[in-house]
Design a binder for these strands. Structure first.
Lengths: 140, 140
DNA sequence: TAATTATTGCAACATTGTTGCAATAACTAT
DNA sequence: ATAGTTATTGCAACAATGTTGCAATAATTA
């Protein structure tokens, strides 16, 4: 079974409906390698003949976030982006010239730091966000 | 000479005017240990008897960002914050329960990773953002 | 003190995000 | 296949954040 079908299954198993818009949004987010903003997602829905109200898109994003199907990433250009939660924890390389975004996997590199933070500041880290900004291969 | 006077000097040296609002905003950002949003800054200006238009606050933040006097931080609660650029590079511990923010200094810990990114992906890292989310000493 | 022009305020707008409520459509059980 | 239930949707209205053009103001220079 494809990963995306697991997502659909999970939604139904939890007693939620698999509406056209919901399904299309998961498909869009699943297919996209880079980050998508709410309005980009809405535009893609439109492009595929599924005009959805802004409210619906936001409510659906809220639903998918709650279900831990997608996550929210805020990068420094003043926008909020969403992406499918993937098993492999990764970070982003954001090119400040061409705005491209690529993923980078870094192993469990911050774990040691997080232990240190707990010892030093008694702050229990549950999540982190790490983005790198710079020039991509083409723009450098 | 105090650090803040260096900022004022730099502004004048570059041919810009040291207006009441500009000065007050630097003072406010300089005095504040944690992050401030645009509207919080505006509220503090008002509180000190300096009512400024929203437009002015945003334009001034743009100016201070360009001058590299402040930097912008976007954390996961949907807001944009600003803080004085300090010589000591630091990150933030954001408590998801009480919304408190504390700073943490981590040494030049990501440098090695950034070198690796360059070798591996040919992406030249110029900056990064790293925030930790979790429970602070009190909330845990 | 007057002249120059950077800075400001105002009005108007754009974008993002939220809420309440009535209409619609997905699913369930028959 | 159909009817009933109610999760989901669209609409209207709003709130917050952020931007632009232009005329008025005030910080600096001479």
């Amino acid at each position: 079974m494809r990963d995306i079908d697991n997502i659909f299954e999970k939604i139904k198993r939890d007693g939620h409906r698999l509406t056209k818009i919901r399904k299309a949004m998961v498909v869009i987010l699943f297919a996209e390698k880079c980050l998508l903003s709410a309005s980009e997602i809405r535009a893609r829905l439109s492009a595929s003949g599924l005009a959805a109200d802004r409210t619906t898109v936001y409510r659906e994003l809220g639903f998918l976030l709650e279900k831990n199907i997608i996550k929210e990433i805020r990068i420094a250009d003043r926008k909020t982006y969403y992406e499918i939660v993937s098993p492999e924890h990764h970070h982003h390389l954001v090119c400040t010239k061409c705005d491209s975004v690529q993923e980078i996997v870094m192993g469990n590199h911050l774990k040691r730091q997080e232990d240190r933070i707990y010892k030093k500041a008694k702050f229990k880290v549950l999540a982190h966000s790490l983005e790198f900004y710079g020039l991509c291969r083409k723009c450098k």
